[in-house]
């Protein structure tokens, strides 16, 4: 599934500029704690989160996240949108809640790209 198909699936609204809409999304990860995201997410995942500050984009950039979905119709501050534009990461707002979104994406064939944080091997390696 690519970013543009993802947007359609979740009635999403693309908030950021410069995003590559043909980028492939390989799976998903949902979390509000950025340290958890950094510890557990695999590359090229879509990140579902209720957090709206610029750190979400920074985290996404560090962890090679393919797209960010802000759940429950959240509207982020301008700084977050601008940073997503500068880093060319798709920042999407969806009216659905976290649970509904995870369900929709899973049904559409996206699987979890979260690894357990108690796993001793570093999640960063392919």
């Amino acid at each position: 599934m690519n970013v543009s198909e993802l947007i359609k699936l979740i009635d999403g609204k693309l908030l950021s500029e410069n995003a590559n809409l043909t980028r492939e999304v390989k799976g998903g990860c949902g979390a509000d704690l950025m340290s958890d995201v950094l510890a557990s997410i695999q590359p090229e995942a879509v990140l579902l989160t209720g957090l709206c500050n610029p750190q979400v984009v920074r985290t996404a950039q560090m962890a090679d996240v393919a797209a960010i979905i802000l759940v429950r119709g959240k509207v982020p501050p301008k700084e977050t949108i601008d940073l997503a534009g500068a880093e060319k990461i798709a920042l999407i707002s969806s009216p659905f809640g976290m649970f509904e979104l995870c369900g929709r994406l899973y049904q559409a064939g996206l699987h979890s790209l979260e690894v357990s944080v108690s796993d001793p091997s570093c999640g960063c390696e392919e």
Binding site: D32, L33, S35, D36, L38, A39, Q55, V117, C122, C124
Partner: peptide, 27 residues
Amino acid sequence: PGYSTANETVRELGFGAGMGLVNIQRC
């Protein structure tokens, strides 16, 4: 893992879960 001295403001930002140093070590 999980030990944190961060306050509520920091936690609202998505940090302070006590995973920072653990994450660093893993990488």
